[in-house]
Design a protein around this nucleic acid. Structure first.
Length: 629
DNA sequence: GCCTGACAGTAACTTCCCGG
DNA sequence: CCGGGAAGTTACTGTCAGGC
């Protein structure tokens, strides 16, 4: 109802939508009510805007919790029995990765079960604070004036009396400093006392986000709470073996449940998502859903959606760059259809000008024209035309330092094709992607895989080159070699699964499904691989397919959907890779060792390396500064 | 002795169907 | 359209036998 403060302003009104209906009709039109309504709307709007989605969409009921229904059912049954006192279970341990809705589920279930048990307590409760009494959460700051190691035991002592009409679920999400031995022992001792107590106790739940810690020694030779915070290392076998303890293990959330929750948020935030095309939203959803962490997924989705209109998806920009680029090639090869009404010379001039206005990457344009001029009339023209085009492209290449070299390349190609002696109706083949694009796509794909792998394993110390070498080259070798260091690696790896690697073949690329199948843990293969890298740096099979058909694809709809396609050349990285490859090649030649066990034909690959390292054209490109290193 | 693949069992996930 | 349940699928783990 309405109250007034000393100034006569209305300051409170019953919360909830129903409250508005309670306002009597005789004051419906008064200024006060209008003012109150406006204030309430503004406050709600401000509160909502200032809150993060993770707070706004925090589940209030069990049906809103993003979790496997079977898991929900299991936990609900256990908690229900604990609250009714019909089970011997006194401690429920919920373990699993972060963001799998463990603690949210417990809090919501506590509200539901205790509310059902004693509804009178909640009849007059209107604020979330009052409703929060259904669970009591441990916090290191919750008890003042107590030594740190006694925090927890004091908390449990106080919690013992939260039974009967004062019933509360005791939730431990925040742990005391269990890395201090005496605190850990006190923690276990307090729990053991709780389990052995004869009196009726409130339900005690510990939510543990299991983590594998990565210290300086990332190859863990031992298993302890210092490197693995798990149910076993935290509680110890004495507690876990007791019949009063129940452990429920949760897995990362399945995509179906996360998709449902996130789509619900997208629906409710339709104002923000209205300006974002559906496709990037769905692509981003798939990306964040794969983590199995609903909390970080909601946070990431919010940041992504709010920033989208300013930054846009980089993938989309790449696509636009690519499409513009291929339109430009088409305008040079076939001339632009925009000027069909004009005479031929004018069409050519305008086509070239249009391309020049929008593309300044002349070397890439030259390369693309070189690969695509044969599609004009399916190469059915005099050989002289082809010779002239390649000559002009070469001249344009030589004249790179001159500003007008792009003009020469474009005009001469258009000029030659315009004068090509073609009989009958002209028929054209499909334009092809330059191998540069294909190579960049592969480069970015591997790079993103490595970044993901580094994120997952926490191995930030190793460089991109190191990881590429480790997982693209040494891992399959070590695996295939039946030595004492052989490792049976079942998990995901760069370059494809091991079962697809054969001694006589190169390293296959992972297929689309496998790309998403990332490893959960850092496997011990890293150790052997790292040692291998530091003692035996050599590359013998860095094969690059020269098969033009494999590198140049016709433009089709399938390629248009390729998100990883990108024209951005990271010159510094290319320079580093070239320098790295060369240094490895020289080392290999100098030491003539370490390649006995390498995959494939060493002679052939060595020859390729020699050709690569002594390529005068490449030297010229690098020394002329066209690829700045 | 080690590696590998086949097989079985289990748990979790996905899909489909049905009723409200 | 949504929720619940059943059935099918997938992933993971452990065991065992055969090959090197």
């Amino acid at each position: 109802m309405l109250n007034r403060n000393n100034d006569g302003d209305i300051v409170t009104i019953s919360s909830g939508d129903e409250s508005n209906e309670l306002i009597s009709s005789d004051i419906e039109n008064s200024e006060d009510v209008i003012r109150v309504k406006r204030l309430k709307v503004e406050q709600d709007s401000e509160t909502k805007n200032s809150q993060q989605w993770i707070q706004t969409y925090q589940p209030n009921s069990v049906k809103d919790v993003c979790i496997n229904p079977q898991k929900l059912k299991e936990v609900r049954n256990i908690l229900d029995q604990m609250m009714k006192g019909v089970t011997e279970t006194k401690l429920l341990i919920l373990s699993g990765p972060a963001g799998c809705s463990k603690s949210t589920l417990v809090k919501v279930l506590a509200n539901e079960l205790i509310q059902r048990k004693s509804p009178a307590r909640f009849m007059f409760g209107t604020s979330t604070n009052e409703r929060g009494n259904s669970y009591t959460e441990y916090s290191e700051q919750s008890i003042e004036g107590t030594g740190q190691s006694n925090h927890f035991s004091e908390f449990l002592m106080d919690s013992k009396y939260r039974t009967g009409s004062n019933l509360s679920l005791i939730l431990i999400e925040e742990l005391p400093n269990i890395y201090n031995l005496s605190t850990l022992l006190n923690f276990r001792k307090s729990l053991m006392e709780w389990l052995c107590a004869s009196e009726t106790l409130p339900p005690l739940v510990v939510c543990l986000s299991e983590v594998e810690l990565q210290g300086e020694n990332k190859y863990q030779d031992y298993f302890s709470i210092e490197n693995s915070l798990t149910v076993e290392t935290l509680f110890g076998k004495d507690i876990l073996n007791r019949k009063q303890v129940k452990v429920v293990r949760c897995k990362p959330l399945a995509s179906t449940f996360m998709k449902k929750t996130l789509n619900n948020i997208i629906n409710r935030e339709r104002k923000i998502f209205a300006s974002i095309p559906k496709k990037p939203v769905q692509e981003y959803l798939e990306d964040i859903i794969s983590t199995g962490d609903i909390r970080s997924a909601i946070c990431n989705l919010e940041i992504w959606a709010r920033q989208y209109k300013y930054t846009k998806s980089t993938d989309e920009m790449y696509r636009e760059v690519r499409l513009d680029f291929f339109h430009a090639i088409g305008k040079i090869i076939f001339s632009s259809s925009n000027f069909d009404t004009k005479d031929t010379n004018e069409i050519d001039c305008l086509s070239v000008k249009e391309v020049q206005d929008h593309n300044d990457n002349v070397p890439l344009m030259s390369l693309s024209l070189l690969e695509n001029y044969p599609v004009y009339n399916d190469s059915s023209y005099e050989i002289r035309t082809a010779v002239n085009i390649t000559d002009y492209l070469s001249v344009g290449d030589l004249l790179t330092p001159i500003d007008t070299h792009g003009d020469i390349v474009l005009r001469s190609t258009r000029h030659c094709l315009r004068r090509a002696n073609c009989q009958g109706k002209r028929r054209h083949g499909s334009l092809k992607f330059p191998r540069h694009f294909k190579a960049m796509r592969e480069y970015r794909r591997i790079e993103s895989q490595i970044k993901l792998y580094m994120q997952r394993t926490g191995n930030y110390q190793l460089s991109f080159d190191d990881l590429n070498l480790l997982y693209g080259y040494y891992a399959p070798q070590i695996y295939m070699k039946r030595s004492e260091n052989s490792i049976r690696a079942k998990s995901w790896r760069l370059g494809g699964s091991f079962k697809e690697i054969y001694p006589e073949t190169g390293i296959p690329m992972p297929d689309e499904q496998e790309e998403n199948n990332l490893p959960e843990d850092n496997d011990s293969a890293f150790r052997v691989l790292f040692e291998k890298l530091s003692t035996n740096n050599c590359i013998s099979n860095s094969e690059v397919s020269d098969d033009e058909s494999s590198l140049s694809d016709p433009i089709d709809s399938e390629d248009s959907d390729d998100d990883l396609f990108n024209d951005s050349i990271d010159n510094s990285r290319i320079g580093k890779l070239v320098a790295f490859s060369r240094s490895q090649t020289h080392e290999t030649k100098g030491t003539e060792q370490g390649t006995e066990n390498s995959i494939g034909d060493n002679t052939a690959s060595d020859t390729e390396e020699d050709v690569f390292s002594s390529d005068p054209e490449l030297n010229d490109i690098i020394s002329s500064g066209r690829y700045k290193i």
